[in-house]
Design a protein around this nucleic acid. Structure first.
Lengths: 226, 226
DNA sequence: TTATAACAATGATGCATATCACAATTTGGC
DNA sequence: GCCAAATTGTGATATGCATCATTGTTATAA
């Protein structure tokens, strides 16, 4: 029998549970290896578990009937997802796909729900997580509605830099396995437009491009596009 | 000393608390009358209370620096708002303004927090509320990113009809104190565009217009615009 | 390494929707 | 009920971005 409490202890949601509780919950957890492009769950499927990223990267996205994709988040180690289905027992509101090979943990809703009921601290933690998500989602709504594509892309780059960026000598580098199309699907535009705007940002010496990596070399100037 | 437990009992969030708890909480509540156009709180102010609508209507909105508005929700009797600041103690993420005269109740965060800690059921209710909000926000993100203005307006009308509509002989009537500009600010477009699209919907016999009221007379046809 | 497929860049064109300007209508205060 | 102010409707024009078409480039596998 595996003991996953080492993993759980690194997830902010479960941090500072007592080591006993941690062990107890970890016994209920399942951990699987996922390769790039593997699907974890599909939008609309009955939601039966809460997931957390141990390693690798995960993209959460929604589709329209005609097959166009809107990416909601890019998640990494420590992030939890599908928390809404734990609460309301509805279907998954979005799909989860692995975009960088890694390990994903899962906890069945039924198993976890008891902990929520008896452990108000954990409930509060889930609340905090959801309030953070809600704030982000509302900002996303505002930006999509009111900003042009330059503003949305600049804002997205700054966000990705904060969450996934690595500081380097020339600036913060975002090196995610995201193609132009996926970058476009993050901000509600097209492949071509992303190419053109990135070109403009580069011309203006806000960023540098190298293969799939994007380096922000002048954050202040990039912010003028917001 | 007023007893507001009659009001609280009608708020889904507090329903099925014991009548004792209800009374206890209601003693902490303050109720105020608000006239149309009065501001309840402003985006960015320190968040110090949770609010609930007893009567009247409230609009929740965010602004950009240059003064453009994005409306997030239209709320009515029974709805709770500013729940995120109860959890994360940050500033209000959006402003709340009364668009139809009525009574608004408030509960200071400090007073309520103890209840959350000791009453896991209430915490779960707040969780359910937030998960509902989050699902809605994510759908809004997807629609803003992927649908055209016709689709967004059709979808907004259907939503408003569900929440605020009244069934009548010819269809569901939405009669909210919202101008064209505000309708536009709900779906990220302009006054003029809303006018034109409503005109098209009317020409296609999806809706009827009478002063500020909008009646959906052919829901099925309206849905074809989605 | 070369072959082949996926992805990215670039230019030309078109369309949806913003913007602007003004007329028409409705609303709210006295 | 009347008037001023606010809101709405409507046409003309502008433009940001999508779409389409093509070429160039980068990954993947034999």
């Amino acid at each position: 029998m595996n003991d996953y409490s080492q993993f759980l202890g690194k997830i902010p949601l479960f941090r500072d549970l007592s080591s006993e509780e941690l062990k107890e919950i970890s016994l209920l957890a399942k951990v699987r290896n996922y390769k790039k492009n593997m699907l974890i769950f599909l939008e609309g499927e009955p939601g039966e578990a809460l997931f957390f990223v141990i390693s690798g990267k995960v993209k959460i996205s929604m589709m329209t009937e005609d097959g166009r994709e809107q990416i909601l988040h890019i998640l990494q180690h420590g992030d939890v997802f599908a928390e809404v289905v734990l609460i309301d027992r509805g279907p998954y509101p979005a799909s989860a796909e692995v975009i960088e090979t890694g390990q994903i943990g899962m906890l069945m809703n039924d198993d976890l729900e008891n902990y929520l009921r008896t452990n108000p601290d954990l409930a509060l933690k889930v609340l905090r997580l959801m309030s953070k998500r809600l704030r982000l989602a509302q900002i996303q709504v505002r930006d999509l509605a009111l900003k042009d594509t330059y503003g949305r892309l600049a804002s997205m780059l700054l966000m990705l830099a904060k969450d996934h960026g690595e500081d380097g000598p020339s600036g913060i580098t975002i090196d995610l396995p995201l193609g132009r199309q996926e970058l476009a699907n993050l901000i509600g535009t097209t492949r071509e437009t992303v190419t053109r705007i990135l070109g403009d940002f580069k011309k203006n010496k806000c960023i540098e491009l190298d293969k799939q990596a994007i380096t922000i070399i002048d954050e202040a100037k990039l912010k003028t596009w917001l």
